[in-house]
Design a protein around this nucleic acid. Structure first.
Lengths: 212, 212
DNA sequence: AATATGTTTGACCAATTGGTCAGGAACACG
DNA sequence: CGTGTTCCTGACCAATTGGTCAAACATATT
């Protein structure tokens, strides 16, 4: 028998599991740093400590590694938004979402860049996912935010653009990390603590109802 | 004589000017859509309506086209920030800056993506430029903003993160255009008018002094 | 018209790269 | 142990791609 992925669910051996994980870890490293076309199978193989043909034994093509990564990471990536809770206090909920998202930028910059790279190129390998996974979730949460606005619990905002702005502001610290670190005054080595304070202030002022 | 770029400033012929421009225009198209490594010289040649060797007659290497683009566009790209005027009314100045920057995202999405692609990959072809061109400008404008804060003319903000947030929010609409358009409810075909309203609101609430 | 200079290209090359394949090594298991 | 299965690799291939070059073509100048 050939490639272990080819047939129906056999119980995965330990070796398969280990190498599978090593490959995806290495692929994340390389794809996120150089983009899909910029990455070579050899680089991934080296990063994983395996030979090139061996990678192709576990994944039929380079593209298969890439999509395995994207689809595998999507849930993790959307988890913070999923947690936005209709029952919570609106401003706290949104600020917590911002914090979670910023934390992801700090802890998972490679994942952020992987998605950024993909979307920047028009997301050719992502069409379906956007429409079918992301859109329903965003629609649902936008509606939730709109309800909060209508209920007079947060200030007037366009819910979709609010969500976009949270993504944009938080992911910026992962995707444009080099720029941020280059431009920040030398004292501040870690941009994140200050970024959190800034973003919390921003969204607090943005969402708090004007007292009249 | 060989390549027309090789020697000192001869008066540029009309043909040189025309082709030079056509090549850079085509290169912007291709580089911004596929990144440096994803772009091929042949694609650029085709987009420019010239043959591949002919491109290499005007630019010694693929990389030369890329850096010519980056350095050539940097001034345009930074112009909106340069215009931030110490003598103006602070909030108006910053809101105008946001508007100008958003307008650039609308009018020049390719340029935005070109820079985004580059910085995403750690900006290997951009090191010097960041340090020597961008940093001084940002330092100067950050100081200006700090003065406004200290003078009690706008609310307390971290000036550098304020600048980052303006970049992030405005460029998002160029760099992640596909995503934005996919997720926005079907009625709104052009995201920009609503985006402008949203961003103006956001920065107004962010910067206005709390009346006490 | 002759000549020099600038522009263009077809043919070609070497390097890189995604992927194949036949067979060998390691392992599971009776 | 022996045998079937899984795992791994060196050698190889075809396609792509950045770049070269000699020669053809065009354009200005005298």
């Amino acid at each position: 028998m050939n490639s272990p992925r080819a047939q129906a669910r056999k119980p995965e051996t330990r070796i398969q599991k280990r190498n599978h994980e090593a490959i995806l870890e290495a692929a994340l490293d390389v794809f996120s740093a150089r983009g899909f076309r910029g990455a070579t199978v050899d680089q991934i193989a080296q990063a994983a400590g395996l030979s090139k043909p061996n990678l192709l034994y576990y994944f039929p093509t380079k593209e298969a590694m890439h999509t395995a990564l994207l689809t595998g990471l999507l849930d993790t990536w959307l988890a913070p938004l999923r947690k936005l809770d209709p029952k919570g206090e609106p401003i706290t909920e949104i600020l917590d979402y911002v914090r979670r998202k910023l934390e992801m930028s700090r802890q998972m910059p490679r994942e952020s860049r992987l998605f950024a790279n993909e979307i920047l190129q028009g997301g050719p390998r992502l069409d379906g996912v956007l429409e079918q996974e992301l859109k329903p979730l965003v629609d649902e949460k936008a509606k939730l935010i709109q309800d909060w606005v209508d209920g007079g619990r947060i200030a007037q905002v366009h819910p979709y653009h609010l969500i976009f702005s949270i993504w944009s502001l938080t992911q910026h610290y992962a995707d444009f990390d080099v720029q941020v670190r280059t431009l920040l005054p030398k004292g501040e080595t870690d941009p994140f603590p200050e970024a959190e304070r800034y973003l919390v202030t921003l969204f607090t002022r943005m969402l708090k109802l004007a007292e009249d």
